[in-house]
Amino acid sequence: MTAPESGDVWSFDYLWRWQHERGETEGRKPRPTALVACVKGANGRTNLFILPITKTRPSDDRLAVEIPQIERVRAGLAADLRLWVMIDEYNHDFLETSFYLDPKGRIGRFSSAFHKAVLAAFVQAGREKRLRKVPRYD
């Protein structure tokens, strides 16, 4: 398996917050997701912070970053579709024990500059207490 890295785009069965709140435990379909951060924890496990990518224009009350065409191409996404990385919710998983990360699921990678912009928006959303976490582990 290619080890996931911050800035990667992976196919992942993302579980939306609204689905989680309804008691669902499984994502309904694999979708492109952005690995905004892969951080080794004090417990030795690698924390994965996974953001969904969507073609649905986000409503005004949501936080999202539109993906420029060059970044869509770079990351192996549809160049002809408008796509957004959703910033205000994320799935949290651990690499070493994940049931959801497909070893063959890497699609591509964003540039360092675009990844830094997405990460900065994610950190800012955390400071503003606008992040909604969906744990993907037991």
Rank of each mutant, 00 (worst) to 15 (best):
A3V: 14
A3S: 12
V9K: 01
W10K: 02
S11H: 01
S11K: 08
D13H: 11
Q19E: 15
Q19F: 09
R22Q: 15
G23V: 06
G27L: 02
R28K: 14
R28V: 12
P30D: 01
T33S: 12
A34S: 13
A34Q: 02
V36P: 04
K40N: 04
K40P: 03
A42N: 12
N43Y: 01
T46A: 02
F49R: 13
K55R: 11
T56R: 15
R57Q: 14
S59C: 05
A64I: 05
A64R: 05
I67L: 05
P68E: 00
Q69F: 01
I70N: 15
R72F: 11
R72Y: 11
V73P: 13
R74N: 15
A75M: 02
A75Y: 02
L77Q: 09
L77E: 09
Y90A: 12
Y90L: 09
F94V: 06
T97P: 06
Y100A: 13
L101A: 10
L101N: 08
K104A: 15
R106D: 00
G108D: 05
G108E: 04
R109W: 00
R109T: 10
S111P: 05
A113E: 11
H115I: 01
K116F: 01
K116S: 11
A117I: 07
L119R: 14
L119Q: 12
A120T: 14
F122Q: 09
V123R: 11
A125F: 02
G126Y: 03
G126C: 09
K129P: 04
R132E: 00
Y137N: 04
